[in-house]
Design a protein around this nucleic acid. Structure first.
Lengths: 147, 147
DNA sequence: TATTGTTATACTCTATAACTATA
DNA sequence: TATAGTTATAGAGTATAACAATA
């Protein structure tokens, strides 16, 4: 097996969607539970970047401003997100998770970790070390361009 | 770094969505181009499992039968999918890609591979070998339950 | 009678356009 | 005048219900 960039790329292109499907499936099981995927992605993003403006979130999730505004309405109604107007610029809005929202995200993440860990358990120690290093490398390569 | 299943799982949960986002982004760039994500996933699935019935595809993509029926209408209209009634059971339908559909899928796959390979190119040879083995292991662990 | 798929209808999500408020 | 966000309206996409055809 020649481990060229192309060989690796082919394997990644096969594997990543497979793992992603499993993650999504697990999340669906927990997820609060009538949340749509975009709503859930929005929670995750706001959790990662608190005090985000609406535009910023809309841009990241890939929705228009009006759509995101309505989506956030729903999350505020469910008491998962807090929407406060910014002091410095009163046009702006600052979004953050409520305690309840953060709890939900935490529960889903934990469930995801448990589910993946269960699958990984048959791997020998050495293979897990390799896996960890590979993931860290991959993450480094794909993380940069999110700025 | 203790490479427990939990540590690996955490890293996978961070990395896989990141890579998946990049793949989706690349696909969006090529994709034929007014195809929705479910339409495109349907093409991929039919490409992998030709002669699939509508129910089978609907089940895999996670849509109801009526919705999938309508979605496939669109793909047939665009001449990407062929829908023929099965000889053995005339209620059934057998779906496959047209030449055009297969070409589209092939182009998108190739573009995805190139894009990932480009990112991987800075990795030293040894790291690529590790990456390849890790992906193969991961794929094995997540592939089984698709039957 | 059960199963595969389609048609009819309603609802949700998202987008474009028009608007309000602040800078 | 430009920018951040909301409200109004319209167009996709999906679901549930009712139906047609085959097994």
């Amino acid at each position: 097996m020649p481990a060229t960039p192309e060989t690796c790329a082919r394997e990644i292109l096969e594997t990543v969607p497979l793992v992603m499907a499993a993650i999504r499936c697990e999340m669906r099981r927990i997820r609060g539970s009538d949340l749509t995927i975009p709503q859930f992605r929005t929670l995750l993003y706001i959790g990662r970047k608190p005090e985000s403006s609406l535009s910023r979130v809309a841009d990241h999730i890939g929705l228009t401003l009006p759509s995101m505004s309505k989506l956030v309405d729903g999350l505020v109604d469910r008491a998962l997100v807090r929407r406060v107007e910014s002091r410095d610029d009163r046009r702006r809005v600052a979004l953050s998770l409520t305690r309840e929202g953060a709890d939900l995200v935490g529960r889903v993440r934990a469930a995801g970790r448990r589910s993946i860990a269960r699958r990984l358990s048959p791997l020998p120690q050495e293979a897990r070390g390799e896996m960890l290093r590979a993931m860290q490398a991959l993450r480094g390569l794909f993380e940069e361009d999110r700025a």
